[in-house]
């Protein structure tokens, strides 16, 4: 029995290509970090736009969010990829991937941030207003951190999903971790072993990202760090 397993699972050929795995991993991390930042900015802007009393920005944000949340990411990335090239833009596959991932995660982040802002009590906005703060200042100083503190677990999950979803960019030949796996398994004829290794790497990346967000939370929510209580 042990001999059969030994024959079936052989990781040596895969681990010998560690350089390729490392390069793929580096690109996956790069895609995730960049699009977490850009997606967060776009998502927050859209959440604010959607809550605006002005019709035009609210409608534009709503259409964008619903369009993205109701179509598959694989389709979105192809539309961006072929759309940009038919418009004459000559972007690298990585750039296209960053654009598509940003558009995708921005829409989901917008809904999460909107829920966060909606949870801010009316009295908080009134207090800010009566102290003379502008709407922008009220968002920045009064609403942003408490909103984020409440939705932080959802936000963290969404960004981990984003990192995992970046594997789909292998479809437009971005050489991230999954693309590396596809290549390695075609060279080694060891698909099971390859994808087991890749799964473990993704798992490790997810856990590392979760840890990073926990540390970031400690940094940006000093009240929670000091008191250990929920808002």
């Amino acid at each position: 029995m042990a001999r059969v397993l030994e024959m079936k699972l052989d990781f040596t050929a895969i681990l010998a290509r560690w350089q390729m795995l490392l390069d793929g991993m580096a690109l996956t991390i790069q895609l995730a970090v960049i699009t977490i930042l850009t997606g967060f900015l776009i998502g927050t802007a859209c959440a604010i736009a959607r809550r605006s009393k002005f019709r035009l920005p609210a409608t534009i944000a709503a259409v964008y969010v619903e369009l993205i949340r109701n179509t598959p990411f694989l389709v979105q990335i192809f539309v961006v990829y072929f759309g940009l090239s038919s418009l004459g833009f000559k972007f690298t596959a990585v750039t296209v991937a960053i654009i598509a991932l940003t558009i995708n995660v921005g829409a989901y982040t917008a809904e999460i941030m909107r829920a966060g802002f909606d949870s801010i009590h009316r009295g908080q906005w009134e207090a800010a207003e009566c102290l003379g703060l502008t709407r922008v200042q009220a968002y920045w100083h009064v609403a942003l951190l408490p909103a984020m503190e409440r939705i932080y677990p959802s936000l963290t999950s969404q960004f981990i999903l984003l990192m995992l979803a970046s594997s789909i960019t292998s479809q437009i030949s971005v050489e991230e971790l999954t693309a590396a796996a596809n290549f390695i398994q075609s060279e080694t004829y060891r698909p099971l072993e390859t994808y087991i290794v890749i799964a473990i790497i993704y798992l490790a990346l997810s856990l590392a990202l979760r840890l990073a967000f926990w540390l970031l939370g400690m940094l940006i929510f000093p009240r929670r760090r000091r008191l250990g209580t929920n808002l």
Binding site: H121, G123, Q124, E126, A127, A128, E129, C130, L131, G132, L133, Q137, H141, V142, L145, P146, E149, F221, R223, L231
Partner: peptide, 30 residues
């Protein structure tokens, strides 16, 4: 609102800021 101060029944202090930060927020940003 620079000339009028208002205090509410439900205090409406900003929960994520210390007492001092609550007080200095408007003088600093406004």
């Amino acid at each position: 609102r620079l000339d009028v101060g208002i205090v509410f029944q439900s205090y409406n202090l900003f929960p994520h800021l210390t007492v001092e930060e609550n007080i200095t927020l408007a003088p600093r940003s406004v």
